[in-house]
Amino acid sequence: MIKAIDVTSYKFSAIIFDCDNTLAKTAPVHYIAFSTAVKNCGYSMEEAWYYERVGISGIDLLKDFQKTYNAAFDIDKASLESGILFKKNIKLVRAVEPVAQVAHDYYKKLPMAVASGGNRPTVEATLEAINIAPLFKTVVTVEDVTKGKPAPDLFLLAAQKLSIAPQDCLVFEDSDEGIEAAQAASMQVIDVRKVLGPDYLK
């Protein structure tokens, strides 16, 4: 049996999870998608370069790639193609088991939500792919707010939907932007990168 991350040192009344690379190991599949999309534009994306930027949005990743390599291609087109490729390979996505186990352990015991900077169809498909979607009645995505992470809006909306005060929420996150957003919302936050180590996505 997978051992869940220990949360006994925290006092909380609800749990809010990020999706990408927190509940689900999406980075390897996103790498396939982004590297293929830029390859189709005539460029090569190194795996190490990509993993140094896990956590930023797809658009920002492609903008950074253009800047780093002086690459010229249509970002919107490449982003759209990468999204299609991700969904095509979504069955390759695996759960981040120690985090997913927390969700299983607290299901029907405490209110829980997913708050993701991804788009709703992709987030919902990801949760389905790792067989965890039934655990969450509340899923908040980028379409639901004006400002995404690092603004606190996603987390505040999730807390509102759960009818729990922000300071009583415990957040699981994997990115600097997400942690900043949770802290700006006055929530407690666990950085899964520190708990699970740098290679947990490999």
Rank of each mutant, 00 (worst) to 15 (best):
M1E: 13
I2Y: 10
K3Q: 15
I5T: 09
I5R: 07
S9L: 11
K11L: 06
S13V: 00
S13T: 07
I16D: 01
C19D: 06
N21H: 05
K25W: 06
K25I: 04
P28N: 03
V29N: 12
H30R: 09
H30G: 01
Y31R: 01
I32N: 10
I32W: 13
A33F: 12
F34D: 03
T36P: 00
A37I: 02
K39P: 01
G42R: 12
Y43M: 08
Y43C: 12
Y43H: 06
Y43S: 08
M45V: 02
E47I: 11
A48R: 15
A48P: 00
W49D: 01
W49V: 00
R53P: 08
V54Y: 10
V54N: 03
G55S: 08
I56R: 13
S57E: 09
S57G: 15
S57H: 06
D60G: 01
D60N: 15
D64Y: 15
F65N: 07
Q66H: 04
A71G: 07
A71S: 06
A72E: 14
A72C: 13
F73R: 05
D74K: 04
D74W: 03
I75V: 15
K77V: 08
K77A: 13
A78H: 07
S79W: 14
S79L: 15
E81H: 05
G83E: 14
I84N: 12
K87L: 15
K91H: 14
K91A: 13
V93G: 07
V93E: 03
V93I: 10
V96D: 03
P98C: 06
V99M: 03
V99T: 07
H104C: 09
D105K: 12
Y107K: 10
K108Y: 02
K108F: 14
K109V: 09
L110S: 08
L110F: 07
M112Y: 06
M112A: 10
A115P: 04
A115N: 00
A115C: 02
R120T: 10
R120W: 03
P121H: 10
V123Y: 00
V123H: 02
T126L: 07
E128P: 00
I130F: 06
I132F: 07
P134H: 15
P134A: 12
L135S: 12
F136R: 06
V139R: 04
V140Y: 12
V140T: 04
T141P: 05
V142E: 07
D144Q: 12
K147L: 15
K147H: 15
K147S: 12
K149N: 09
A151L: 10
L154I: 13
F155L: 09
L156M: 08
L156F: 11
A158G: 03
A159K: 13
Q160R: 12
Q160P: 09
L162S: 02
S163F: 08
I164K: 01
I164R: 02
A165G: 04
P166N: 12
Q167S: 13
C169W: 08
E173I: 12
S175R: 01
S175V: 04
I179W: 06
E180G: 00
E180M: 11
A185P: 02
S186H: 13
S186P: 01
Q188N: 11
V189Y: 05
I190T: 06
R193N: 14
V195K: 08
V195E: 05
D199M: 08
